[in-house]
Amino acid sequence: MAGYEGMLAETVMFDGHDGDLVSGYMARPLGAGPYPGVIVLHEIFGLVTHVKEIVRKMAAHGYAAVAPDLHHREGPGDPEDVAAVVREAGGNPDARTVGDVAGAAALLRSLPYSNGKVGIIGYCSGGRQTYLAACSLESLDAAVSCYGGRIAAGPGDLNERQPVAPIDMTAGLSCPLLGLFGAEDASPSPGQVEVIGRELERHGKSYELHTYEDAGHAFFADYRPSYRQQAAVDGWERVFGWFDKHLG
């Protein structure tokens, strides 16, 4: 008989950027720990069911995970409706995102069952924000960026909310980075992924970039037609291999 398994999943509030009280969704194994922490950054669609499922998947693998609602301040409301407001505004302000990630990391480290390590993973716009946060903060121990568009943004992609391309912050990357991409993706395109790899190499960073053939953008998103089973299964193995290696 297998051993007892259990988890607790719930809405949490924590101090985000500028001390704002921000909501998030958290899951953790029921046990004494110690457990590594993982921050999950949602796609542009906000803190929807798919993201909550990822948080619970992390907990099932032995991590205390939290997905901050990066659109908290534009709410309340249905995540998709709130996301439409954020899209119109030009996306999340980068400084606010980094502040919210710092708050989420502090939350995870404050837990009595934390092992003191915190990783981060993000998808789509959250993949870009993962790269941004990992280059901006020193409080992260491992990062996984999944098909983050506009990491290698051109001048036309920048605005007041997102004034600097994350790739131009690469020198500040303070933890090992895993990047997972699809060869059929247009944002980021395979060419942009090559540019990211060259920049990481130039700065002597610890990283791995992997591009899946027969997959495009959002191949982990199992509620959309972009889902690619083979890429997703292999991708999850790489994600947990990365976190087990660097956060365990």
Binding site: D78, D81, V82, R87, E88, H217, P225, S226
Partner: peptide, 30 residues
């Protein structure tokens, strides 16, 4: 609002997302 980007519900990788909204009434008036 109109944007060509990844849809949430349509069964395609990209779609024209068209919103009719009243921001003064909150995000849900959409």
């Amino acid at each position: 609002r109109a944007v060509y980007d990844h849809p949430f519900h349509a069964q395609s990788d990209e779609a024209l997302i068209l919103d009719f909204a009243n921001p003064e009434r909150g995000a849900g008036s959409r």
